[in-house]
Amino acid sequence: MTSGLRIRNLSKNFGGLQVARNITLDIPTGARAALIGPNGAGKTTFANLIIGALQPSSGSIHLDGKDISQLAEAARVRAGIAKTFQITNLFKDLSVRDNIRLPILEREHRTFRFLERHDGDAAIEAEVEELLADFRLLPLANRLVRSLAYGQQRLVELALTLSLKPRILILDEPAAGVPSSDSHLIVDAIKRLPTDLSVLIIEHDMKLVFEVASRIIVLVNGAVLVEGTPEEISRDLRVRELYLGAGHG
């Protein structure tokens, strides 16, 4: 019946600290949702709970009607969820090209093959080159990721995650650290995404949020404060006071 993500009463405690409080949320197929909130609100933790990098203290997560709460992270990724890391998490001693190639090989269930070359499949190679071109990474393709500037690494981070062709995509501050001259690459990439893909973008940059999101969820102290359209959110007094008031008034 329900397609997309269905999150019910999700809670997470770190010792005495409650960083997710009874979060109930739907991210239907094709959604363009943004998750905003002050530093330490629990946004990254929420993303980690959905993808399975963290186990919730209580609550449930359903994907297309199936309970995925008990699945390990890798299994959830194979079920179609993917996320970028707020702090770039790449294969630093591999080339940019290998950083894109490896997730595609994984997506195609090939990393348990021992006798073929990892760069031997023409279709996969073509896909790698296309993604590299999309993010203007071709000139850097043979460089080790560790030798790249942080802004460039952010682009690899997004390209790598998109190469998984997820159905649910969580972007944890994808534009943070990207020079403004390149941030349009991120916006363009998000706008190019297939419409049946659900996107949850965590972002502090309100301009970017309003550009891509059709729904906004405001998280404060681990709990959903309010959820609505960008217009509703920008009109909401509590949000203006708490979040937008500071620098975006």
Partner: peptide
């Protein structure tokens, strides 16, 4: 042969970042 295979590349990925490997769906 093995280290040049997709499996070999996955091993190097695991060495670099197990958490990222999980996040691309690798057991």
């Amino acid at each position: 042969v093995l280290v040049a295979s997709p499996f070999g590349l996955a091993l190097r990925g695991i060495k670099d970042s197990p958490s990222r490997m999980r996040a691309i769906g690798t057991p």
